[in-house]
Design a binder for these strands. Sequence first.
DNA 1: CCAAAAGTGTTATGCTTACACCCATGC
DNA 2: GCATGGGTGTAAGCATAACACTTTTGG
Lengths: 230, 230
Amino acid sequence: MTRSGSDIKVAVDAIVFGYSKQEGVSILLIQRKYPPFKNAWAIPGGFLLPDETLEDAVRRELREETGIEVNYLEQLYTFGAPNRDPRQRIISIAYMALVKSSLFQQLKASTDAENAQWFNFRELPPLAFDHKAILDTAIERIRTKIRYQPIGFELLDKKFPFADLEKLYIALLGRDIDRRNFSKKMLALGILDETNEYAKPEGKGRPSKMYQFNKKRYQQLEREGIHFEI
Amino acid sequence: MTRSGSDIKVAVDAIVFGYSKQEGVSILLIQRKYPPFKNAWAIPGGFLLPDETLEDAVRRELREETGIEVNYLEQLYTFGAPNRDPRQRIISIAYMALVKSSLFQQLKASTDAENAQWFNFRELPPLAFDHKAILDTAIERIRTKIRYQPIGFELLDKKFPFADLEKLYIALLGRDIDRRNFSKKMLALGILDETNEYAKPEGKGRPSKMYQFNKKRYQQLEREGIHFEI
DNA sequence: CCAAAAGTGTTATGCTTACACCCATGC
DNA sequence: GCATGGGTGTAAGCATAACACTTTTGG
C-alpha cells in the first residue's frame, strides 16, 4: 500500500433537478465570483469537512450556496482527473439531487439565491471546470433511471395531476409517450393512488384528478421482485 | 464555498472478479499484514498518488499488491463515511474489475501473489473495514449489469465454448436459465460469432463449438439504440 | 357552442417462456 | 453401448404498442 494523498482535496458537487409543467426540467447553477472561471456558471458544491458524511456535505453546500433543501439525493460518480481543477488536485464526488415542484417554483420566484439560477436542462450555458461532463452524466442518469425507478415523483408535489407526470416523462425522455398506455401501466401496478381532489382548471380544459405516489406499495412490489419499466 | 479537506485522504479499492467453469465466480482478496484488522481479509487498494488518474491508481495498486493486470475496469461507488477507517478519514473510490478466465486460472495456480487469494463469491471470509459493503455493492452491480451489458465476455477468454457463457450467467444470477432461449437470444442479436474451432472434450460429452464476442457488432447495435436483456 | 385538456378500451404484434429429443464424443 | 454434455424448434401466453373518440370545463 502506497502512503500518500496528502495534498489532494475532496469536494462534493450536486446537480439539482427541478421541474414544473411550465418550465420543464431545470438545473440549478451558480455563477462564480472569483477566478478561475470567474463569472462562468458552475454546479454548486464545495469541500468536504473532516467529520461530515458525503451527503451532509452536499446538503450543507446547497444550503450555503443556494438556500435550497432537496428531498432526494443519490451519488452519481466521482470525478478525479489530475487536471480537472487548474489550482490543485481536487476529487469531486458528484451527487444528483431532486427538488419538489412547489419548492422549485418558490425558488424560481425568489431572489434569495443571489447568484444561483435555474436553467432549462436543454439550454445550458457554458460551464466551468469539467462540469459539463458531470452534468451530462447526471442527465443520462435521470433519463435512464426514471424508466425503471419511481424517482419522477420526487420532482412532483405529493399530490399531482396525472398529466404533470406524463409531461415530466415526455420532457425527460425527449419523445412523446402514449397517454393511454402510460396511465394503464402506472395504474395497473397500483403505485398511484387516486385522491378525490381535482386540480383547479387553469384557463381551459377539463380539470384533472389528483394522484399520489404510493411508496409502501412500491416497496412491497420491489420486495416481491417486480420491476416497472416505462 | 467552504475551504477545508486537508487531512482527508483519498484511496482507491478494486473488487476483482475472476471466473472459470470449475471454480465459478471468484473474488480476489488480500490478507492484511498490519493492524488495524491485522490478518483479516480485505479488498486490494491503496492511496491515490498526486498525479495519477483514478484508474491508473487502481491498476498500479493491483499490480503492486497482487501482480494482476485486469482488462475491464468500471467505477462502482465512493465510500466516505467519517469512521470507515479507525485511523483517519479516508475516502475510497471503489472500482469493479474483471479478469479474463485464462489469466484467472494462471493466478489461481501461481503462488506469486504471496498474500493474495481468490475466494468464491458465495463463500467469502469476514472482511476488514467496510469492505463487506463494498463487495455487496460490486456483486449487486455485476449481477444487474450482466443482464443488459455484455460484460460477461470480459470474464471469458477471447474464444469460449457457449456452455461456459451459460454457466457464467447461471453462477452470477444464481438460478437456472433455459439453454435454448439463452442461445437463441444471444445468437439472434448477432453479437456472437461462431468460429470453426471446437473445444477439446474433457472426459465425456460432445465437444462444443467455440464462440467469440463481436464487439463491433455490439457497438453498432448500441448506436442504433438496440439493447439486449437476458 | 367552441376550444382545450382529460379520460378511457380494444386489437395486433412481437417477445418471452416453457418444454424434450437427438447428436457427438470418451470410455 | 452407455454415459455425459452439446445442440436445436415450436407453440402458448403475455406484455407492448398502436390507435380515436367522448367528457368536462372556461370563455
